[in-house]
């Protein structure tokens, strides 16, 4: 018996969005009289941090602090239409809608400021902290909060914005497969290191190290959260999970977490990632998105590392200890694929 170590790599692309049925999202924004902004959406937050990311995009565009944004989402009596949170689309699609709505609301604020300061809108700049000033004359300024209050009580005007982002439906050519299914592509390359126990067939993942290129990050800590969770899920797909352990037979299917194998905290490897940012041409502030893809490259990287470690090629997932041991037996008998 031995514990054999190996390293494997994998590289992947991942498409943002899936628009074969058309893929729209809307956003509405209005200012309160105290100068905060309510952003009304219908997108679900799956725990990835959608509310946070949308608040950041709105704050950036409106030129106000993050704390001045309230996100209200997923009540169909108030929220405008949204396709849903899937296909790694939300930061890109909903983010574009929020940005468009924020630009429209910002125009209304700038219009008021230009009238009060008697300058053209083109001469105004946002300071990013809730202020508007005349370019080159920082003493000539207005607070967005004051403008919002006067808009309601003095001028009787709205400060509001509507935004929509839609990638038009792309029909697939049934003969050639020609189609335009996505908006942009993000990339990942993972290097996994494993240790195979040749007596038990058990595989320990020692490290999952990756580079990602996801366009502009809106919130790098949330991106790292996705990367860590995805690496864990990919490792689980590669080595542990199935609802049908005897597939295609349906026997011995698990009914709860006690019978459904997943790696726990104790099995977690070193997970490390660097993130490159190359702006996309069509995402808000150059966003591409990072959601689903983080589970992808760890799977083949781990499977390739197992081969590198012990010479066993397993082409079926999950790679169970039984599959490893059978592969080692075949190698010993000179029948291995290696």
């Amino acid at each position: 018996m031995a514990r054999l170590r190996g390293t494997g790599i994998a590289a992947v692309n991942y498409p943002t969005g899936m628009n074969l049925g058309g893929d729209p999202s809307q956003a509405l924004i209005h200012a309160t009289t105290s100068g905060s902004f309510n952003v009304v959406l219908a997108a679900a937050d799956l725990g990835q941090g959608l509310r946070t990311v949308m608040a950041q995009i709105a704050a950036e565009t409106l030129g106000v602090p993050y704390g001045q944004i309230v996100i209200q989402t997923a009540d169909t009596d108030t929220g405008p239409h949204d396709m849903g949170t899937f296909a790694s689309r939300a930061t890109h699609r909903v983010g574009n809608a929020v940005k468009a709505a924020a630009i429209e609301a910002r125009e209304a604020v700038l219009q008021l400021a230009s009238e009060e300061l008697e300058v053209s809108i083109a001469d105004l700049v946002l300071d990013g902290r809730g202020g508007i000033q005349v370019a080159g004359s920082p003493q000539k300024r207005r607070d967005i909060a004051d403008l919002a209050s006067r808009a309601q009580f003095q001028y009787g005007r709205t400060i509001a914005g509507r935004g929509v982002y839609m990638k038009p439906k792309s029909d697939v050519d049934p003969e050639t497969g020609a189609m335009d299914p996505d908006s942009t592509q993000a990339y990942a390359c993972t290097v996994a290191e494993v240790e195979v126990d040749t007596e038990t067939g058990a595989v320990a993942v020692l490290s999952i190290r990756s580079a990602y290129e996801v366009g502009q990050q809106v919130n790098p800590a949330l991106v790292q959260g996705q990367i860590t969770g995805g690496a864990w899920m990919g490792m689980s797909h590669a080595l542990y999970e199935t609802t049908e352990p005897c597939y295609p037979s349906r026997d011995h299917s698990p009914k709860d977490f006690a019978g459904y194998l997943m790696p726990g905290m104790a099995e977690l490897p070193i997970i490390e990632a660097v993130v490159l940012e190359v702006p996309s041409s069509n995402g808000p502030y150059g966003v591409k998105g990072v959601g689903e893809m983080t589970a992808n490259s760890p799977i083949p990287a781990i499977v390739n590392a197992i081969y590198h470690a012990c010479g066993v090629r397993v082409d079926s997932l999950p790679v169970t200890p039984e599959a490893i041991l059978r592969g080692l037996d075949a190698l010993a008998q000179g029948k291995g694929a290696a």
């Binding site: 790599i9 189609m179 990942a188």
Partner: peptide
């Protein structure tokens, strides 16, 4: 193959970054 022209591609740069990360 589905006739879409590749844009926003960074596979090469991403692999170079991964190689640097692991010291390869």
């Amino acid at each position: 193959p589905h006739r879409k022209v590749t844009s926003d591609a960074t596979l090469i740069e991403t692999m170079q970054a991964a190689a640097r990360l692991v010291g390869h």
